[in-house]
């Protein structure tokens, strides 16, 4: 049992450096997905509360599709479909072969899924803000955009931070699915190590431990952010 531990050494003899390179890609992918997912989710939620029925309908189609498709299928569709669409587009002008970057495809696919779920979080947060806040802001002479930015958004963040935190934890785990389109993130690096060493129990346990540590640190960080945005409520 213990004699296999040298496989975890750092450097040429062991696999720790490879695993950490994978972990770095996992974290980068999750962080890169976040801004796109949050902005898109907020826009979709704004669409859903819009008084204009067609905007609401378009937003609901979005959430139905991206909450209904398996993440794995979304990843494949973005990766292969994106490749074919790009190829067709470029084929109009030049005769070159394009390949979609798997990091980028994973980022888009996970961002679409994240935003669909985030829009639901934002939507219920919007419902938690009384209409009087909009009206009060309007009475003070704020434009709708200024009212949103100065009055609604700070409250929205406070109400949605818990739900968004959960989505972040889900996102860090879902990055593992991008390994199927050959992105060298943590799980794929682990599988490579297993293939070379034939020690699946050791390496998959280490990978699981790294994911657990990641979620532990995330929870700590989220707790700090939550305390910070809710400092106005502290008594």
């Amino acid at each position: 049992m213990w004699e296999t531990l040298h496989l975890l050494a750092w450097g040429d003899g062991g696999w720790s450096d490879e695993l950490f390179a994978g972990l770095k890609i996992t974290i980068t992918l999750a962080l890169a997905t976040l801004p796109f997912g949050l902005v898109m989710g907020l826009l979709v939620a704004l669409g859903q509360i819009s008084s204009e029925p067609t905007i609401g309908r378009a937003a609901r189609i979005y959430t139905t599709i991206f909450r209904g498709l398996p993440e794995l299928l979304t990843i494949f569709i973005v990766y292969f479909g994106g490749q074919m669409a790009l190829q067709a587009l470029i084929g109009l002008f030049a005769d070159t072969y394009v390949e979609v970057n798997s990091f980028f495809a994973g980022m888009i696919a996970l961002g679409l899924v994240f935003s669909a779920y985030a829009s639901e979080v934002f939507l219920s947060a919007f419902r938690g803000i009384p209409q009087g806040q909009w009206e009060g802001a309007a009475a003070l002479g704020l434009s709708r955009f200024a009212a949103f930015r100065l009055v609604i958004l700070p409250q929205l963040i406070r109400l949605s931070i818990g739900g968004l935190g959960n989505l972040w934890l889900i996102l860090t785990k879902e990055t593992s699915l991008v390994s199927v389109i050959a992105l060298d993130e943590l799980l794929r690096q682990t599988s490579v190590a297993v293939g070379a060493t034939k020690q699946p129990i050791l390496f998959y346990s280490v990978a699981c431990a790294l994911y657990l540590i990641l979620s532990l640190i995330s929870s700590q960080g989220l707790g700090m952010i939550e305390r910070r945005v809710k400092r106005g409520e502290a008594r």
């Binding site: 799980l187 998959y204 346990s205 994911y211």
Partner: peptide, 13 residues
């Protein structure tokens, strides 16, 4: 706290 894919790999392999 861990991805389901990693759990499947851990059990299967």
């Amino acid at each position: 706290g861990t991805p389901m894919l990693a759990q499947v790999f851990l059990i299967y392999y």
